[in-house]
Simulated assay, not measured.
Amino acid sequence: MAKTQMNVRVDETTAQAARERALAQGVSVNRYIEELVQRDAAEVGRSFVDAAADFMKSYEHLFAEEFGPSETGGSGSGSLPKA
């Protein structure tokens, strides 16, 4: 994957913390920052999936009334009813 250069301004305390954490993990500051952003993006994705699952649990009875009970017994396998 191609890399893009970014210039970021942070206060010296934050910069020093990034250097120290990267050193402790045995990675470059660039790699450390990249991994932080990737983890943050993954957390957002997990939050969305969790919210969708909660929504389905809350409204499962309404879907069952409209479309009939799921063939999986509500296990959330994602299978659609046969047409």
Rank of each mutant, 00 (worst) to 15 (best):
M1S: 13
A2C: 02
K3Y: 12
T4C: 06
T4E: 13
Q5C: 04
M6R: 15
M6S: 12
N7C: 07
V8S: 03
V8H: 03
V8N: 03
V10D: 02
V10R: 02
V10C: 04
D11E: 15
D11I: 15
D11M: 11
D11Q: 14
E12Q: 11
T13E: 13
T13G: 10
T14W: 02
T14C: 07
A15F: 01
A15C: 05
A15R: 15
A18C: 12
A18W: 10
R19W: 08
R19F: 11
E20Y: 06
E20W: 07
E20D: 15
R21G: 08
A22M: 13
A24M: 08
Q25Y: 08
Q25C: 07
Q25A: 14
G26Q: 05
V27T: 12
S28E: 05
S28R: 02
V29I: 15
V29T: 09
N30V: 12
R31S: 09
R31T: 14
R31F: 07
Y32C: 01
I33E: 00
I33D: 00
E34H: 09
E35C: 11
E35A: 12
E35N: 14
L36W: 01
L36E: 04
L36S: 02
V37G: 00
V37A: 02
V37E: 01
Q38L: 12
R39I: 08
R39K: 10
D40T: 11
D40F: 01
D40L: 01
D40S: 02
A41G: 01
A42L: 09
A42C: 01
V44D: 10
R46F: 04
R46I: 04
R46M: 03
R46S: 02
F48K: 13
F48Q: 12
V49H: 09
V49F: 10
D50S: 13
D50T: 11
A51E: 14
A51G: 05
A52S: 05
D54I: 05
D54W: 03
D54C: 04
D54T: 12
F55N: 04
F55G: 01
F55E: 05
K57S: 07
K57N: 07
K57H: 04
Y59N: 12
E60S: 14
H61P: 00
L62P: 00
A64M: 03
A64I: 06
E65L: 11
E66T: 13
F67I: 09
G68T: 06
G68W: 05
G68H: 06
P69C: 06
E71V: 09
E71T: 11
E71W: 04
E71K: 11
T72N: 08
G74W: 01
S75W: 08
G76W: 06
G76V: 09
G76C: 06
G76Y: 08
S77V: 05
S77H: 06
S77Y: 03
S77M: 08
G78F: 06
G78W: 07
S79F: 09
L80R: 14
L80M: 12
P81G: 05
P81M: 08
K82N: 14
K82E: 15
K82V: 14
A83H: 14
A83L: 13
